[in-house]
Design a protein around this nucleic acid. Structure first.
Length: 684
DNA sequence: ATTAGGG
DNA sequence: CCCTAAT
């Protein structure tokens, strides 16, 4: 007997009739997945968080819950208690003052149905997001190699990412700063910092606006650009000051999206940029990992006991921030050493989970560069019932129902209903755990730019949005062919009508692929990212050891071959190669250009690695190749008429500097060659 | 791993 | 941004 059914995932017990599903879901199945995911990240994160929560208290475990399965989360979860199968999540108020909103959600689930009842309003999207992340991350963290207690998942830690530090001067000033005098003159006495600041603000007005809920804690001046932050040391205790006067003006771009990095700056005098980012890609990975492990551990036997492990994890989770913080920093000491950040394979993987990137972008602070990603094929559209309620500049919405992607279930006729339920649950759990990502639909259109703020996207309390929807779609990246990395023929490409899904094997969830993806929304729960995007080099290796083809055996399916019962999210990409996603486009902000120009003026055009190190050390998404390319385009841009230029306009003065620096260094290069020419001639 | 260029 | 060849 083969049951083929789509399940509506109701948050409020609200089921969306299949008939009412938008056709979009299906239609988009064929779309090439190249999505970068998330747009309106907050929304996605919120949704993801919900889903994950749900997962944690999946029916499988819910049996014993009997009404006690209530999950309440406040801000960041600090500790978790388990009562039999029931988990109670508690969190502590964020002490940063940035998030003052109170609790935002509570969930109640019924055991017999895959329904989650989510009520309560989200006082702030950020909070919601934070919630989702924390709950998710918490566990994942445990799984991570960091070990319990080492992780952080609150915004505080996140702050580290958005940090810039001054660079120390290297080499002799004369060589290092050919443009030093010139630049200074160019500033007309205006402090570099100020200059940059104006530049940033001019371009990205809202970036640092006071309205930003995520205000920085105590650091004074932070410059935030569209997708990166510029940090300028204010105090003089920077080493660079002494040895290299102008160094204090160095601009460094930090990628807020990178989760992995901890902080770049060790100097107290440095300003902290962006408040925080709860979970980064790392978080995503962790989440995924968590999900995966959980899934495999629990699903199969549906035993209790399993949770006990979590306890330990959870506790560890509540490590004190200090510790986590320290850890984080230490980890990122040698960014370049372990740089494989842009490895594509890794990127794709990350997508599977919600990326943290963007999670914290609130409308107020938003302003990120536009990213253009292609949408991933969505296999299903979740039921949408979103209502907005004006409240300050916050958007409140409640998702009445969510439909999960289509699942195929195959089960013997002789199986019991209970067995069927479990099977279905597992399938759902599996999908939710790692194979989904969240998409946002606005008026029928998929919102692909995860970096846009809700406001920019048109989702604001001012608008009576009646057409905001979320979708759960198979996460291409995430969905790795678990079992057969080589890509067995049987794994159908996403365009296949309705490929069968199979339970992800641990391997699949694994990260082999990892992430980098910019921001895969939920399934991968990224960065963000988005993560970062992209950025975390460390793949999740949890699956490595235990994962074997046999893992499938773990699937708790009644006496039948796993294969038979296997429910697999379809729409997975069969080939890893296909998983390769083009990195999301992240236009350089003026601040970044400024930093680049300054670095090039100082270092020249042939030392991109140094440029990267000097000015973009913390911007994981900017590789030296990117910088080189950007310089190339800048030179080109500077040469064409302003009318021909596109994108965010770059201040003419910057372009002028580009040209002069380019000319200068070209000349230098020529001289170098001239010098060598004679030598070679002599040699010959 | 970097650099340099073409696409 | 991607892809490659050459270092």
């Amino acid at each position: 007997m083969v049951l083929q059914k789509r399940f509506d995932y109701g948050f409020n017990g609200y089921h969306v009739p299949r008939a009412s599903r938008s056709a979009r879901g299906r239609g988009s199945v064929k779309k090439k997945v190249e999505d970068n995911s998330m747009c309106a990240f907050e929304l996605l994160a919120t949704v993801a968080g919900k889903l994950l929560q749900e997962k944690e208290t999946s029916p499988i475990h819910a049996k014993a819950l009997a009404g006690n399965d209530r999950t309440t989360i406040v801000k960041h979860i600090v500790k978790e208690e388990h009562q039999d199968e029931v988990k109670i999540l508690k969190s502590e108020p964020f002490d940063q003052g940035s998030c003052n909103e109170g609790v935002f959600a509570s969930g109640l689930r019924s055991q017999d149905h895959n329904q989650i009842h989510v009520s309560k309003e989200y006082s702030h999207v950020q909070n919601v997001v934070g919630l989702g992340h924390s709950s998710i991350i918490r566990k994942s963290d445990c799984l991570e190699k960091f070990g319990c207690g080492e992780d952080f998942l609150n915004g505080k830690r996140r702050n580290e990412f958005g940090r810039l530090r001054s660079t120390e001067g290297e080499g002799s000033p004369a060589n290092e700063e050919p443009f030093g005098g010139k630049v200074e003159n160019g500033t007309d006495g205006v402090p570099e910092a100020q200059k940059i600041s104006s530049g940033v603000n001019g371009t990205v007005p809202d970036a640092c606006s006071s309205g930003d809920p995520m205000k920085l804690d105590r650091k004074p001046c932070v410059l935030v650009s569209s997708d990166s932050s510029v940090e300028i040391p204010l105090h003089s205790n920077c080493i660079s000051h002494a040895s290299f006067p102008r160094c204090q003006d160095d601009i460094k771009i930090v990628n807020k999206d990178d989760d992995e990095n901890s902080s770049g700056c060790t100097q107290p005098s440095t300003i902290n940029v962006k408040a925080f980012r709860p979970a980064g890609r790392i978080g995503d990975r962790r989440i995924r990992k968590l999900l995966a492990s959980k899934y495999w551990k629990v699903a199969p036997k549906l035993k209790d006991g399993e949770l006990s492990n979590h306890d330990g994890d959870m506790n560890s989770f509540s490590c004190n921030r200090k510790t986590c913080y320290t850890r984080q920093r230490s980890q990122r000491n040698s960014p370049f050493k372990k740089r494989k950040l842009f490895d594509r394979s890794s990127v794709s993987t990350s997508d599977g989970v919600i990326s943290s990137e963007g999670v914290f972008n609130t409308p107020e602070k938003g302003i990120n560069g536009v990213t253009t990603g292609s949408a991933s094929g969505a296999s299903s559209v979740a039921g949408q019932q979103v209502s907005f309620q004006p409240r300050d500049s916050h958007v409140r919405l409640s998702i009445k129902s969510f439909r999960i992607p289509e699942l195929f279930i195959e089960i013997p006729e002789t199986e019991t209903i209970g067995s069927l339920k479990r099977t279905v649950m597992e399938a759902v759990t599996a999908v939710l755990g790692g194979g989904l990502r969240v998409g946002v639909l606005l008026q029928g259109k998929k919102v692909r730019d995860d970096n846009k703020t809700l406001l920019q996207t048109g989702i604001s309390h001012d608008n009576k949005l009646d057409s905001l929807g979320f979708t759960l779609e198979p996460n291409p990246t995430n969905a790795p062919p678990l079992i057969c990395p080589e890509d067995p023929p049987f794994l159908l490409p996403c365009d296949a009508p309705q490929p069968l899904n199979r339970y992800p094997t641990p391997a699949a969830l694994d990260p082999g692929a990892s992430e980098a993806s910019p921001d895969p929304p939920m399934a991968s729960l990224a960065n963000c990212v988005e993560s970062d995007h992209d950025s975390v080099p460390s793949p999740i290796d949890m699956s490595t050891d235990k994962t074997t083809p046999d893992s499938r055996a773990l699937v708790a399916i009644p006496a039948m071959s796993v294969e038979a019962l296997a429910v697999v999210p379809y729409n997975r990409k069969s080939r890893r190669s296909e998983l390769v996603q083009r990195r999301i486009r992240r236009p350089f902000s003026v601040a970044e250009v400024e930093a680049l120009v300054q670095a090039v003026e100082k270092l020249g055009t042939g030392r991109w690695r140094d440029v990267k190190l000097r000015a973009f050390d913390n911007a994981k998404h900017r590789t030296y190749v990117d910088l080189k390319d950007k310089w190339k385009t800048l030179v080109h841009t500077a040469r064409i008429s302003p009318q021909q230029r596109r994108g965010e306009p770059v201040p003419q003065d910057l372009l002028d500097r580009v040209l002069s620096a380019h000319a200068y260094w070209s000349q230098q290069q020529a001289k170098q060659q001239v010098k060598q020419q004679p030598e070679t001639c002599l040699l010959v």
